[in-house]
Amino acid sequence: MKKNKRFNRRDFIQSSIRASLVVSVGGIGGLALKNSTGRDWVWQIDPFECNQCGRCATECVRNPSAVKCVHAYDICGYCDLCGGYFIPGAVKLDTGAENQLCPTAALIRKFIEEPYFEYEIDEDLCIGCAKCVKGCTSFGNGSLHLQIRHDLCRNCNECSIARVCPSKAIKRVPSDTPYMIKGSFTKTTDT
């Protein structure tokens, strides 16, 4: 009898501690849940904040990076002299390697009609170095810009590029609107 009672007391202490742990774990869960919108989050680059530092190519956990250049055709000027395609001071506006800016020749130039040209990105070749983005943003309309491609992105808990992004352009976005493509993407202003 006596022994039994002793056990009961220990059991009681154990159970009450367990109960309080359940409550506190539940409490933490509840508090966190209050802050949850039920959506999932992925990483994306805000093209308006990106300053083309080149770290997307070097800092991604993937090699080659999950960041690729995308082309927002909507705002492209279809220039002959494209700041994203040609090196500054290209001797001739043709597709010769000596004139191209892209280190992997991932940007493809196609003639449409005088004097317009279309520029397309071969994502298999693109390494996300943002060289063309810099050229396009500086000299052109900024239609070339970087985006994280979600078929490649590992969706790390903390993006290793975001950690070192000097302009803090990489942020969490809801997974149902995972892209910020220029032209169609306009950030809703706080009303």
């Binding site: 390697a97 000596e98 191209q100 280190p103």
Partner: peptide, 9 residues
């Protein structure tokens, strides 16, 4: 330049 570029890539 072109051949060097090809080689590099």
């Amino acid at each position: 330049i072109r051949s060097l570029d090809l080689l590099a890539r």
